[in-house]
């Protein structure tokens, strides 16, 4: 479960958003929509604990390292570490044991296990970031434009991965994509 109350973010004199309040529990999917620059990615970063809010607070049940999965379009990966090394590093730091090779098969990236992050295409990077987000049985998945850069098979894979976790995960998506919006049980519009 993830909840936030009175959340606001200001850059200089400009408020991106204010008074954002919601609670998302297992089985629910909140889709955050809004025009470019409305703060969708910023909101997800705050929920992931990567940015401090200007006001308000967010609450995640459990240790965020293992209960929260985050993948974003603009999240870089280590250019010199291979795909498998990324997953191993994440597992070691989170203190979880998982079958990384099987995980790569699930996101259809097994063929690139020994490819360095710097040599991945944008679609392959999106698959790697999704794999890192779902590596442990997280209770909250935060996905920022998850299918941007994915081809048709990638989008099918994404839907399969999300569908298989819907029952056990609270899902928050930042997107304007029509197909991703169809997953929503609730929707927030940040941009008018």
């Amino acid at each position: 479960m993830i909840a936030c109350s009175g959340l606001g973010k200001r850059y200089g004199d400009r408020w991106l958003f204010r008074n954002v309040e919601f609670q998302v529990t297992t089985g629910e999917c909140l889709v955050v929509v809004g025009r470019n620059g409305s703060g969708k990615s910023t909101l997800l970063k705050i929920l992931a604990g990567l940015l401090p809010p200007t006001e308000g607070s967010r609450r995640v049940v459990g240790d965020p390292r293992t209960s929260l999965g985050y993948a974003a379009l603009d999240q870089p990966v280590y250019p010199v570490l291979t795909v498998l090394e990324h997953l191993q590093l994440a597992a070691d730091l989170r203190g979880v044991e998982c079958d990384n090779k099987q995980l790569l098969e699930e996101v259809e990236l097994g063929y690139a296990a020994s490819t360095a992050g710097g040599n991945l295409s944008s679609g392959m990077r999106a698959r790697l970031k999704l794999a890192m987000a779902i590596q442990c049985p997280v209770s909250v998945l935060l996905l920022d434009e998850p299918t941007a850069g994915l081809d048709a098979t990638g989008q099918t894979m994404f839907k399969r991965v999300v569908d298989s976790r819907r029952a056990t995960t609270a899902l928050i998506l930042a997107t304007n994509d029509r197909r991703e919006r169809s997953l929503a049980t609730h929707e927030i519009n940040l941009g008018l």
Binding site: L50, R65, Y70, V77, P79, R94
Partner: peptide, 16 residues
């Protein structure tokens, strides 16, 4: 600068 610090913020404890 590379933006990879966020990966560590997501996965790791500060002392590690």
């Amino acid at each position: 600068e590379n933006g990879t610090g966020d990966l560590l913020r997501l996965w790791a404890r500060p002392y590690s």
